[in-house]
Design a binder for these strands. Structure first.
Length: 196
DNA sequence: GATATTTGACCCCT
DNA sequence: AGGGGTCAAATATC
């Protein structure tokens, strides 16, 4: 697999920024409207902005990943949010393997600065935790989440959240699969970004 | 009572 | 055999 070249990396950030732009527009339209909707939009904007910052700060452009206890993670393609277009990293295409093996995945690093939360900022989707594991070489356990709507809407999206060793305020979030569930704010933003 | 989280066990891959 | 990912029962919270 190829590393993300500068153009590709820049394009990803531009994509993220474009998404932020649309979300801001949505927020502007909804100002004075439903406060809950505005709050969600603001949270989304925050999350996407964090992702972009995280990509730049963590040097995703050259695919540098943190080395935990001397263990180098395999290079990930720097891909933006699952909300935007994804360039899937082909995993083993083994139909007998675990279901997640055939899903796309992309990693982002987000910060929980200021929030002091156990989990990073909300990314606009509701997640349900289904597992936690201590990872060899990592100081903090990895949490496993899947979409709350997995049952009702068959959404196969999952994510793994792990606190960075060197900075507890940072979280490495690995998204697997794509959301097939429909979140109202996401759907609205998507409609703006991708008009029918 | 419904839903979410925790946690140990199990499965599969390397 | 060891490690990572998922399942599912038990428990907690609303």
């Amino acid at each position: 697999m190829e590393s993300v070249d500068e153009n590709g990396g820049s394009r990803l950030v531009v994509t993220e920024l474009g998404y932020i732009k649309e979300l801001v527009r949505q927020l502007d339209v909804n100002l004075g409207g439903c406060p809950d909707h505005c709050k969600r939009l603001a949270a989304q904007i925050f999350a996407v902005a964090e992702r972009s910052i995280g990509m730049i700060r963590s040097g995703h452009f050259d695919c540098r990943k943190r080395s935990a206890a001397g263990l180098d993670s395999p290079p990930f393609s720097a891909t933006p949010s699952p909300l935007s277009d994804v360039s899937g990293v082909p995993f083993h295409a083994n139909n007998k393997k675990r279901k997640t093996m055939e899903k796309r995945k992309h990693q982002v690093r987000v910060s929980s600065e200021g929030a002091g939360a156990e989990i990073p900022v909300d990314d606009g989707h509701s997640w349900r935790k289904y597992g936690q594991k201590d990872i060899l070489g990592a100081k903090h356990p990895r949490g496993y989440y899947r979409c709350t709507h997995r049952k009702s809407q068959g959404c196969a999206a999952t994510k793994q959240v792990q606190r960075a060793d060197e900075d507890p305020a940072l979280f490495d979030v690995i998204y697997h699969g794509e959301h097939t569930c429909v979140h109202k704010t996401v759907a609205a933003a998507a409609a703006m970004v991708q008009p029918a």
